[in-house]
């Protein structure tokens, strides 16, 4: 068992941008002695994407054609099992994506491989592979080893690894495992997810409120402020748990993941569960009365102030403005 296999799954006929990050991560392991780097392209008409992954460090590109255009978890499972059988890699890297969640753990359990999801750092040494990932809802970082495992399958977090670039000189091969008839679900259609009137994942400005507002009767005030600002209103977990706000507005690990241009957090302490859902926002501004609040660790701008007073001043400022457009 040697070498690194990166699984590049095509989604809707496109190669996800994170594929180059996985190739970058795999290339780094190979430089540390893990062997040669193979990139597998799996999906409908994978040949069309060969040049996109022919980058620095890639020794071989293997295409595997899926019988149907739409992702199907059991087909992907069979294809990955065939790839591991054919190339016997020491490490398999795939993205920690909603598609991968449908088959990767099944492949690992059936093959008795090593496994971890949502991995954020990797290293290879004579002692083998090491991986890092969050633990206890992101409060802690766990370092993992995979003793006795000939193949280790890891799902990597998007954005955690440097993407590969440059021009490669990979050889190209094809693998034709039996994939017809492996599907066990029937695709009906795609739909826009049923979310409330305001889809907080699409807003450019988010006004997000937390326990610091102290009273459910304050909510209409912040709804109005959000409207004045041209922002959408979102909330942290405790407000949903208290029944003050609907779940569709919740930002966090068990809510929605958002990345607006500006995330204004009022009275949010910044528990790891919340931060997991908003840390990719372009600009994070936090107002909290507690100078020790964890939100100040990840915010770009912070103010220790009385929330209600700042809100009143914001209302005055935005109320005076002409409505945009």
């Amino acid at each position: 068992m040697s070498g690194v296999l990166v699984l590049g799954g095509l989604a809707g006929g496109r190669l996800p941008a994170a594929t180059l990050e996985m190739i970058g991560a795999g290339g780094a392991l190979c430089e540390q002695g893990a062997g040669e780097l193979t990139v597998a392209l799996l999906g409908h008409e994978p040949e069309a994407h060969v040049q996109e992954v022919n980058v620095d460090g890639v020794a071989e590109i293997v295409t595997v054609a899926a019988p149907q255009e739409c992702f199907e978890a059991h087909v992907h499972q069979a294809a990955l099992e065939a790839l591991i059988g054919a190339r016997a890699p020491a490490v398999v890297l795939a993205g920690h994506t909603l598609d991968s969640l449908g088959f990767a753990a099944a492949v690992a359990a059936r093959g008795r491989h090593g496994f971890a999801g949502d991995v954020t750092a990797l290293s290879w040494s004579e002692r083998g592979l090491r991986a890092r990932r969050g633990a206890y809802g992101g409060r802690l970082i766990a370092e993992l080893e995979f003793p006795g495992k000939e193949t280790v399958l890891l799902l990597l977090r998007a954005g955690a690894f440097e993407p590969a670039g440059g021009a490669g000189r990979a050889t190209v091969a094809r693998l034709d495992p039996e994939l017809e008839g492996r599907a066990r679900t029937e695709h009906v259609e795609f739909r826009e997810a049923a979310v409330g009137a305001a889809d907080i994942t699409k807003a450019e400005l988010l006004l997000s409120i937390g326990r610091g507002i102290r009273d459910s009767e304050q909510i209409p005030r912040f709804e109005r402020l959000a409207e004045l600002m041209g922002a959408a209103l979102s909330v942290s977990g405790p407000l949903v748990e208290a029944g003050w706000a609907p779940g569709a507005l919740k930002v966090g690990q068990s809510g929605r993941t958002v990345a607006p241009r500006v995330y204004l957090a009022l009275g949010i302490s910044g528990a790891a569960q919340h931060v997991a859902g908003m840390s990719k926002s372009q600009t994070i501004i936090a107002v909290n009365s507690d100078p020790q609040a964890r939100i100040f660790d990840i915010a770009h701008y912070g103010a220790v102030a009385d929330l209600s007073e700042v809100a009143a001043e914001l209302e005055r400022l935005f109320d005076r403005r002409e409505p945009a457009g």
């Binding site: 991986a131 970082i141 370092e143 994070i284 915010a299 701008y301």
Partner: peptide
């Protein structure tokens, strides 16, 4: 059957922190 073994647990490094207004 286990897929991994945890060999260390640590607190993540804290961010640089916010620019305070």
């Amino acid at each position: 059957a286990a897929g991994s073994r945890t060999v260390a647990l640590a607190e993540p490094e804290r961010g640089e922190g916010a620019r305070m207004l």
